[in-house]
């Protein structure tokens, strides 16, 4: 069995398409909480995910990955943009149709939410400390009226087993677990309703490499089995390369590059991507890093630089970069990049 055929067979039509997504948080000052400016946490994000596919999402800490994910399921109301999602929950006979999630009523959105699950970044705060593990995993089923006595209990035990926990953990409370164990509880909970899209916000950062490997394998198995799609936010670029079909790179609220995983790692076309790839730590104590040290300060999303947001830190910047924001364009088939000099630069991959 060749892995490419299964991969191609696995990936279907577009499931999610985000266009021009923006989320600005007001900055308030003084007694009257006057708005003095905005944090442009997400500032024009466009991306798509096909069904059965994994889109890796990487970028600087604070560049808006979590905010963008939260906007997609409307945990935050976006400031602008569109989020098209193929849902079965809104038609009586379950036929799929593409809808803009931002136009749905509250009640409709709640129905669609069972198809989109989220695994959170901070395992301790996303689990209710007063609920047992069994209740935590059952909760989504209960909320959506899908809890069936007996059957659901078996499913919970199966889910728990699949994420590497034991049935005797069911009656325990979150604080009795280590960080990694809590994250696995969150994953079991996310999978409880058989979603079609899972937004994974750093799902394996807290896990040790062995459990991480198990979890990545598990996520891949579940993907094959249920044709799941993932948006996979992570900082570990080796993990992202391993799990993703395509990868999008964000910098200060914008997607600056998006391409197939292999292509992006071998032939990065955005200088920020190049700098990131050069900084990946290697599990080898004798390895001497030759990372590109970015000059200047991390950009401030409430007051981004002119032109290309990356220009104060970019070693390839020219005058044009200060004046004009580069357009996010497809420079090669399925390779998108926002850089004026994308074609001429020869950047270093891995």
């Amino acid at each position: 069995m060749s892995s490419t055929t299964t991969k191609n067979g696995r990936i279907g039509d577009i499931l999610l398409e985000v266009k021009g997504l923006k989320k600005y948080f007001p900055i308030q000052r003084g007694l009257l909480r006057r708005t003095v400016g905005y944090v442009k946490a997400v500032d024009d994000v466009s991306l798509y995910v096909r069904s059965g596919e994994t889109l890796g999402l990487v970028g600087e800490s604070g560049c808006g990955k979590t905010t963008a994910s939260r906007c997609i399921i409307r945990l935050y109301e976006p400031t602008a943009g569109q989020v098209f999602f193929k849902t079965r929950a809104l038609s009586p006979d379950g036929t799929p149709k593409m809808v803009n999630l931002l136009e749905l009523s509250r009640e409709e959105m709640n129905r669609v939410r069972q198809e989109i699950a989220m695994i959170f970044q901070d395992p301790i705060n996303s689990l209710n400390p007063r609920m047992t593990v069994a209740d935590i995993i059952a909760e989504p089923m209960v909320i959506h009226g899908k809890y069936v006595k007996g059957e659901s209990e078996e499913r919970i035990i199966e889910l728990l087993r699949r994420v590497g926990l034991r049935p005797d953990h069911l009656r325990r409370y979150p604080h009795e677990f280590s960080g990694g164990q809590r994250q696995r509880i969150g994953i079991a909970r996310a999978l409880a309703l058989n979603p079609s899209l899972v937004l994974c916000d750093e799902p394996v950062s807290a896990l040790d490499v062995s459990i991480q490997a198990q979890t990545l394998n598990l996520l891949q198995d579940l993907q094959e089995e249920f044709k799941l799609s993932y948006i996979f936010v992570a900082h570990d670029l080796s993990v992202v390369q391993h799990i993703s079909d395509r990868v999008a790179v964000m910098y200060v609220g914008k997607v600056v590059e998006m391409a197939g995983a292999e292509e992006l790692y071998n032939n990065p076309m955005h200088p920020y991507t190049e700098a990131l790839l050069s900084a990946v730590p290697k599990p080898d104590p004798l390895y001497k890093s030759d990372r590109i040290i970015m000059q200047g300060d991390v950009a401030d999303p409430s007051n981004p630089p002119s032109g290309c947001y990356f220009h104060p830190r970019c070693q390839y910047a020219v005058d044009l970069c200060k004046q004009k924001a580069p357009e996010f364009r497809e420079v090669k088939p399925d390779h998108w990049v926002a850089c004026h000099r994308a074609e001429e630069l020869k950047l270093r991959g891995i």
Partner: peptide
């Protein structure tokens, strides 16, 4: 040894599953 083998490493994509340590952490 098993721990060192379970790390995903940057490099040509193999499409292979990661090595992981069999079984579960004991009770």
């Amino acid at each position: 040894k098993a721990l060192l083998q379970s790390v995903p490493r940057l490099g040509p994509k193999t499409g292979q599953r990661l090595a992981s340590i069999e079984g579960m952490v004991p009770d």
